[in-house]
Design a protein around this nucleic acid. Structure first.
Lengths: 206, 206
DNA sequence: TAGATTGTTAATCGATTAACAATC
DNA sequence: TAGATTGTTAATCGATTAACAATC
């Protein structure tokens, strides 16, 4: 069980469970069944039970899952039980917008440094963060122990930024640039490219 | 072949092919093999051939695919050969950032209307678009024949906006709010939620 | 022709769902 | 106890990959 390989599909559902569970907790709901969860999240209850069972026996037969307990467990699984530092490169419109999500991400993650290649941006303040030049990227990432990088630069610069992130020791990258970037096997990349999302949507028009 | 059901996984790769093919075209590359494509896009060549073969015989044995021809075909498949009108609700930081992608989306899609619930936003101009009140949503969507909607409002308002979109005749929705929204079966929703992307990334930290 | 590459079938792999004994 | 719901196995479903004849 311990060393079983968990599929990405499972991992990507965990934050969705977490979010809904947090909402339940805010409403003082104490327990929830896989049936409830499935209904609210448009997922099969068996799938939810299976997803959670990969990591332990979190539920009680006949009762369901304790909301607060499950929140704690999923936080641990996702390594969100401590605050993770995030660095962002690209202080354009999108980058600045993302910086303002810090309040939403709350305790689990925090964007702690912003970089940009254009000198005009340097020194500008975004949500209490000072935009730094690229030359300071490596030193800052190491000093602040940044393990996750966000890329919001134009496509043409994305690969170069990814390479710099990796060289500085970043372990995971969220890439918003509409281009496939390549990194070593030990670094994880997720693509958050809304242009491809939009284009694939068009296929489903009647 | 004509009525074969294409999986979402396939549809979501088509825009990625399209983007890279456009880049090749800009560099005056005339043909490309599935091997080349696979290498550049981190995909299996057999998968690429199979994806494309769902829609027709676009390649030439021994040669590969004609770049311009394939671009045209994928545009047709994705219904991107004519300009699609897009409406956006939520003129916050993220919404404003997305409006500036109009130039990138070029001919295939265009955000043509922006709405917001807060009166302070009404009348403001974003990238040549005037922010309209929600009361005008339905009339504007019908008048401009908007078929795709983007939601960039807070989670608490997302479901309501989705319902309004559907009522106004929108056929596909890209939801940036970190919440699962429900729509009728004939409407397609894609979730573009970077907070869950980020949280699932954390799982892969060493 | 020889080499390259497609389109497609078959094999493999993986993910989802159904079913149900265990049990709260 | 009776009803509800888990954890898990088995069945199903679907997606990816390998292999190769066809052919440019």
């Amino acid at each position: 069980m311990k060393s079983m390989k968990i599929s990405d599909a499972v991992v990507r559902r965990l934050p969705i469970y977490l979010r809904f569970l947090s909402e339940l907790a805010m409403n003082n709901v104490l327990t929830v069944s896989s049936q409830d969860l499935g209904q609210k999240l448009n997922l099969n209850p068996a799938q939810i039970r299976k997803d959670l069972a990969y990591f332990g026996e979190f539920g009680k037969k006949g009762i369901g899952y304790d909301v607060l307990f499950l929140i704690e467990k999923i936080r641990q699984i996702l390594k969100l039980d401590k605050t993770l530092s995030v660095g962002l490169v690209g202080a354009g419109n999108l980058g600045r917008a993302l910086c303002n999500y810090n309040t939403y991400l709350k305790d689990s993650m925090k964007i702690v440094a912003v970089f940009d290649a254009t000198p005009e941006q340097h020194g500008k303040v975004i949500n209490n963060l000072i935009v730094q030049p690229m030359e300071e990227l490596e030193a800052t990432i190491k000093a602040l122990q940044i393990r996750i990088g966000i890329i919001t630069v134009p496509s043409t610069a994305a690969q170069q930024v990814a390479t710099q992130f990796v060289a500085a020791g970043v372990e995971a990258i969220l890439n918003f640039a509409p281009v496939v970037i390549k990194v070593p096997n030990n670094v994880r990349v997720h693509h958050a490219d809304f242009t491809t999302d939009l284009q694939s949507l068009a296929y489903y028009l009647g």
